[in-house]
Write a protein that binds this DNA or RNA. Structure first.
Length: 583
RNA sequence: CGGGGAGUGGCGCAGUCUGGUAGCGCACCCGGCUGGGGGCCGGGCGGUCGCAGGUUCAAAUCCUGUCUCCCCGACCA
């Protein structure tokens, strides 16, 4: 299939100086990818083979659930995007043709596919449909990074489903869950399907497929039986020791001390014994809301948006000063209903899920909060007793929090795929409707399902690389077998290697043959850098022993040697059996 | 968009402060040795120093402008 002496595989000893991520360094070093600009990458022959391996797995599983592959253009009229309301998106590349007509480079294909369905689907009898394609996406990313992990142009498989109602969408969605699970399983990646943010569109459902790896841009919260994006994860907080509260809040002087760490240090309490005040202003009506979380917790903007039902922004210092108190000393006590107070449930008084009606009692424990006057904090503030609140879940979970009693870990991960129930978000503006049995026009219910072969490849590099290079899962490897011949040209071993190469080729084995006139060290180093699952070595020893040495790339483990003189069919079979045992 | 860093041969870098006509390692080409872990010897090719303007007898080096790339953060339909 491929002789290295004739193959474009420009390996490098040194990684590009500006590379940071493992996959960035190794994929460049191994000669898989080359950069042409910020977020613009070419796939060299061996790299493209990996990409196509991922593509083929995806294609097979999409076809298995009845997906129909098609192809839609990247270059599209701006008009479509105006109709869908997405023309204003900053990441959208906009351009004009010579006549001055506005065009865009598509970042996904909802507009295009919905337009076609609107043109062609008339009746409930035409539904459901699963349409998908592999196509380049163009996004004007604010910051491309980490090689092929985040680029401005990349190939994505995006699928779209069309159903007559929400129940049909649920079915189509479930099919995709199953297909995506199988895809991820087949790639050999370590992966999680996590609940994801459903955004402002009403929470009808979304999952992300995450591959944990050091260069990941997202975080997943994991516990036995639980996996969620940190953006939406919920967990039981770790307990915090609160000081006993006096019968009423007591003011203490804290001149110039504003940060949680400083206040906790100065007062000798844990950070979790503070209530952090986070005033926000709603984008809609400009109303201010005071959000309180424990001092050792962080407000989660996405969960907050879900609770508020709209997006908000942190209040400006001026707004805080005018409506609450001096920034840095803001607290919930004595606001007299000026703003609504949301208390994160992790800060609820023990045993209380609702605010007590009246008064307080001794033996309670209290928090430290700002006093709403300069250089002062309050001790012994008891939620409910000292201020009214609404209990909500708006904090970001921490490692060590528990779910079902199991402690949570948080890992960086790369999002390789996502599935999302769109509902009628696009069908309505783009006029994708059908006639039901009673002849009534109905909007089509849609779902969209994306997955990135490039990220699958990069995540595999990240997850399985060692100090010597890449170690591909067999499903993604550019070649199953890396055949290395050692010894000078003209040695009998060379002839044996040539013969073996032809045998493997004829037997349909994907083999890369290092027939270069180079030293053994260089060849072995390149083989380990490229990371094919099996390395066969043919040299003097092979001739002497009559056995082909076999090394498994993962763990660099020696496998049972294969007789050189065996029947070709047996040799192929032995190799294939060995492959089946590999990760 | 904010902060930081960098553009000198294919890759990695020195030289810039203190101006004097470009160097090192690897790779590459030729010859020889070696041949189971990036080996050795000898000989070579290759760069208008990101670009434009300016200062100067003279600019990789000083000044002005500009482009590009990377990292951190913000952002991420």
């Amino acid at each position: 299939m491929t002789r290295l002496s004739e193959y474009l595989l420009p390996t490098e000893k040194q990684a590009p100086a500006d590379a940071e991520a493992i996959s960035h360094k190794l994929m460049v070093r191994a000669g898989l990818i080359r950069q042409i600009g910020a977020g613009m990458w070419s796939w060299l022959p061996a790299g493209w083979r990996v990409h196509q391996k991922a593509v083929q797995i995806i294609r097979e599983e999409m076809d298995a659930i009845g997906g129909q592959e098609l192809l839609m253009p990247v270059l599209q009229p701006a008009e479509l995007w105006r109709k869908s309301g997405r023309y204003g998106i900053e990441e959208l590349f906009k351009l004009q043709d010579r006549k001055g007509s506005d065009l865009v480079l598509a970042m996904t294909h909802e507009e295009a596919v919905t337009t076609h369905v609107a043109q062609t689907v008339r009746s409930y009898r035409d539904l459901p449909l699963i349409l998908y394609h592999f196509q380049v996406k163009e996004r004007d990313e604010p910051r491309p990074r980490a090689g092929v992990l985040r680029t401005r142009e990349f190939i994505m498989k995006d699928a779209y489903t069309f159903d007559r109602d929400a129940e049909g969408l649920d079915e189509r969605y479930q099919l995709h869950v199953e297909a995506y699970d199988r895809i991820m399983e087949r790639t050999g990646l370590r992966w999680y399907r996590v609940e994801a943010d459903v955004g402002m569109m009403g929470g009808i459902g979304a999952h992300e497929y995450m591959a944990p790896c050091p260069a990941g841009e997202n975080e997943v919260a994991l516990a036995p039986g639980y996996a969620a994006s940190v953006e939406v994860a919920c967990a039981d907080p770790q307990p915090v020791e609160l000081p006993h509260a006096p019968s009423a809040p007591k003011e203490v002087s804290t001149p110039g001390i504003t940060t949680v760490a400083e206040v906790a240090g100065a007062l000798g309490v844990p950070e979790g014994a503070l209530l952090k005040a986070y005033p926000v202003v709603l984008e809609g009506d400009g109303r201010m809301v005071l959000v309180l979380v424990r001092g050792d917790h962080r407000v989660n903007e996405i969960k907050l948006a879900g609770v508020l039902g709209e997006s908000s922004r942190p209040a400006h210092p001026q707004e805080i000063a005018t409506r609450l108190g001096p920034p840095g000393f803001v607290g919930p006590v004595g606001l007299d209903g000026r703003v609504e107070i949301l208390l994160d449930q992790a800060a609820l008084p023990p045993g209380a899920s609702d605010p007590p009606s009246e008064g307080g009692h001794s033996g309670e424990r209290g928090y430290v909060t700002g006093a709403n006057r300069p250089d002062a904090h309050l001790l012994g503030v008891v939620p409910g007793r000292d201020f009214p609140f609404r209990a909500v879940d708006v904090r970001t979970v921490c490692a060590g929090d528990t779910v079902g009693g199991h402690p949570l870990t948080i890992e960086p991960a790369i999002e390789v795929g996502n599935i999302f129930k769109l509902g009628t978000r696009y069908s309505v503006p783009l006029g994708a409707t059908y006639l039901d049995e009673s002849g009534r026009e109905q909007p089509i219910w849609m779902g969209c399902y994306g997955i990135g072969p490039a990220r699958i490849a990069a995540a595999a590099v990240e997850q399985y690389a060692d100090e010597r290079g890449i170690s591909w899962p067999r499903a993604l490897a550019p070649f199953a077998v890396h055949l290395v011949t050692v010894g000078k040209p003209g040695d009998p071993a060379r002839a044996a290697a040539e013969e073996l190469y032809e045998t493997l080729r004829a037997g349909g084995v994907e083999v890369l043959y290092d027939d270069r006139d180079a030293g053994p060290g260089e060849k072995f180093a390149d083989a380990e850098l490229l990371g094919c699952p099996l390395r066969l070595t043919v040299g003097k020893r092979t001739i002497e022993s009559g056995e082909i040495e076999v090394q498994v790339r993962r763990e660099r483990r020696d496998a049972a040697p294969i007789p050189l003189a065996g029947e070709p069919a047996e040799l192929i079979q032995a190799l294939e059996q060995l492959c089946q045992t590999l990760p």
